[in-house]
């Protein structure tokens, strides 16, 4: 039995996708369509990666106002790239194959997030302290990234600017195939673990009581999150609050925290917002490059509201 709300969301997502593909077609049809289809695929993939990684991350950290990016995981990806630059030297880095860079980045990110984030989760630090440290860590890595970019190439400000906010307009399509593969694998794993995630959401003691291997599950989830974050960061750049927006909306729609519902709902909403928003901005507002900023803005507001409400209780 498939939930009715999911069906509606799926239909909406399909409508958005079709509109994105077909509205205002002109010129060389085959060429334009291929171009748009590639971009559509990338958007869908980024949306899914952001939404799913946020759901899983919120579940393992037992906190509903977190996204991996707020905790600085996407900045870790940047940091991994910096490390690569430092190890290889600027020139070698610039000439390295993009897919290879991506793969090394992901591997480094997985290791780094286990090394840095796990102790924080383990130590059961005060949640506020953890969040704050995460945010500052994010600032640090971003500053470090721009510092090193400037040191390597003092004249090229574009590098630094390009990385500082999410941009859905020039998606890095070269990595699409590899990224799709990774997202798909991660998705299958998450979907198979959906019931386990439900139990993890009950908290550590309850989950162990119900027979979950806590450490293994936590590490596994973090690794999955790392992969998904790396995918979205590599494709469109850092997106701190997007995931929050998607998941908060999804929770509203399905009225449940059950992962079998929440994961597809969040992913579908992500697709609707991104693809629909992109279509809208392109055709109605004539300016699609600001979509990322607008959604980030909305996500930031959602964060503030959640923080505010959460602290009231």
């Amino acid at each position: 039995m498939i939930d009715r709300r999911l069906i509606i969301l799926t239909l909406l997502a399909a409508v958005c996708a079709i509109a994105f593909l077909t509205l205002g077609l002109r010129g060389n049809l085959g060429f334009v369509l291929t171009l748009r289809a590639t971009k559509l695929a990338a958007l869908i993939e980024v949306g899914i990666a952001i939404a799913v990684s946020t759901v899983v991350f919120q579940t393992v950290t037992a906190n509903r106002i977190l996204t991996p990016s707020i905790m600085g995981i996407d900045a870790l990806y940047l940091f991994a790239q910096i490390l690569l630059v430092l190890i290889l030297g600027g020139l070698a880095y610039a000439t390295l194959d993009a897919s290879l860079k991506f793969a090394i980045g992901i591997a480094a990110l997985m290791i780094l997030s286990c090394v840095l984030i796990l102790p924080m989760l383990r130590g059961r630090l005060d949640m506020g302290l953890m969040l704050l440290a995460g945010v500052v860590l994010g600032v640090l890595f971003r500053s470090l990234h721009s510092l090193i970019a400037r040191i390597l190439d003092p004249n090229d400000f574009a590098v630094v600017q390009g990385m500082s906010y999410v941009n859905f307009n020039d998606v890095n399509t070269g990595l699409l195939a590899l990224a799709s593969l990774m997202t798909l694998c991660a998705l299958v794993l998450v979907w198979r673990a959906r019931h386990i995630l439900d139990v993890v959401a009950l908290g550590r003691d309850a989950a162990i009581g119900l027979g979950i291997d806590w450490t293994k599950t936590q590490v596994g989830c973090l690794l999955l999150v790392s992969v998904l974050v790396a995918v979205s960061t590599a494709l469109v750049g850092p997106a701190a609050f997007l995931g929050l927006l998607f998941v908060a909306l999804a929770e509203r729609v399905v009225q449940s925290r059950r992962h079998a519902l929440l994961i597809p709902a969040a992913a579908l909403i992500a697709v609707i917002v991104l693809v629909g928003g992109q279509t809208l901005f392109q055709h109605a507002l004539g300016n699609s490059s600001t979509l990322g900023v607008v959604i980030e803005f909305a996500g930031g507001i959602v964060f503030l509201i959640l923080l505010w409400r959460g602290s009231r209780r």
Partner: peptide, 14 residues
């Protein structure tokens, strides 16, 4: 006490 600076950081970000 950590909520306040966190709130500030995100508020500034928004």
């Amino acid at each position: 006490p950590f909520l306040v600076p966190l709130f500030g950081l995100v508020y500034g970000g928004v």
